[in-house]
């Protein structure tokens, strides 16, 4: 796994000294500078390529999250990252009682079949 400082794409510059620095931040190269700080996460590699995130923190609040490295440059990976993923709409869903005529869910076994199976086991003395 590459250390963050080995990745050329990582840009830790451009602090914007506009507020009081938070002395508590020490993990960044900019720890001694002011309120807006960036923190690069480690590069994580999975089957679809390397991923690395960078966050910007202002006064202890995360103000930005960026993907410094997202996926490999393999054609398919780029196509997926460029087209498929942004098209999806992110939603937070809560289970609620709605008026519906049927429900789609993962396949399930008939209660009757389970009952019958249990009866068969009982019959077999198991």
């Amino acid at each position: 796994m590459a250390a963050p400082d080995e990745l050329p794409a990582l840009d830790l510059a451009e602090p914007t000294p506009s507020a009081t620095p938070d002395a508590g931040e020490s993990s960044s190269p900019e720890a001694s500078s002011p309120a807006s700080q960036t923190f690069g996460g480690p590069a994580i590699t999975n089957a679809r390529g390397a991923y690395q995130a960078r966050i910007t923190v202002v006064d202890g609040v995360v103000t930005d999250v960026q993907a410094v490295v997202a996926g490999t440059s393999a054609a398919e990976s780029v196509a997926i990252n460029a087209t498929a993923i942004p098209e999806l709409r992110t939603r937070v869903l809560e289970a609620q009682t709605w008026d519906v005529e049927a429900v789609s869910g993962a396949s399930f076994t008939s209660p009757a079949f389970i009952e019958s199976l249990e009866a068969a086991f009982a019959e077999a003395g198991l």
Binding site: L93, E94, A95, Q96, T97, W98, D99, V100, E101, A102, V103, S104, G105, A106, F108, P111
Partner: peptide, 21 residues
């Protein structure tokens, strides 16, 4: 027809259970 999408945590027949979409 309005069709519900089951709560992934519901096991067995989801008919009549609360749905997520």
């Amino acid at each position: 027809r309005r069709i519900g999408i089951a709560n992934p945590r519901v096991s067995g027949d989801p008919t009549g259970t609360a749905v997520i979409d």
